[in-house]
């Protein structure tokens, strides 16, 4: 019984994949393991591994509405000419598009702190990476449980 169901499922998936290939979709949703967030991060960091400090990514643990999730990011930095945050990248691991937003700061910002509202398609991890003026990178990561997805795929 179970074997039969598995076989049927496998056939369905197989057929779907064939259709997708025939239609020229290079990244069928059910076959793609990631949305390419690793690549977006690598481009931003230039291959450096971010240290897990200085960045505080504040997101709710549970979001009822994935269409509008409040997010605050704070980066510990004196924000002087000598030492300041330049860019902060935010990616979502399972959104249709990995890139969420990139913030640009300068010493004129005074404080590296920003809030906005983001969309999350499903329960997933969000990563914030800060790049300093000396090129060093820092990160924070939070998982958000999403009750109703919000990337408008329905």
């Amino acid at each position: 019984m179970t074997a039969k169901l598995d076989r049927r499922k496998a056939l369905t998936i197989g057929a779907g994949a064939l259709t997708a290939t025939a239609l020229g979709w290079s990244e069928p949703a059910f076959a793609a393991k990631t949305n390419g967030f690793e690549k977006v991060i690598a481009q931003f960091t230039g291959g450096r591994t971010p240290a897990q400090s200085r960045v505080h990514l504040d997101l709710p643990k549970i979001a009822d509405d994935g269409g509008s999730v409040p997010m605050t990011i704070t980066v510990d930095s004196p924000m002087t000419e000598q030492s300041h945050v330049v860019d902060v990248l935010v990616v979502a691991e399972k959104n249709p598009r990995a890139h969420v937003v990139t913030f640009h700061f300068s010493p004129a910002s005074g404080v590296a702190e920003v809030s906005t509202r983001i969309r999350l398609a499903q329960t997933e991890r969000v990563i914030a990476i800060a790049k300093m003026n000396d090129g060093s990178v820092y990160m924070d990561r939070k998982e958000v449980t999403v009750t109703v997805g919000g990337c408008g795929t329905s």
Binding site: G67, S68, V69, T72, M79, A92, N95, P96, R97, H99, V100, V101, T102, F103, H104, F105, S106, P107, A108, S109, G110, V111, E113, V114, S115, T116, R117, I118, R119, L120, G150, C151
Partner: peptide
Amino acid sequence: VAGKEVFSADFDTAIAANPFIRFKFRAV
């Protein structure tokens, strides 16, 4: 602010409708 860029952001499709943003700057 007073002709000098203090903050900017590159939005994407994952910014919620009716974008809200909160940030700070140093008064000079």
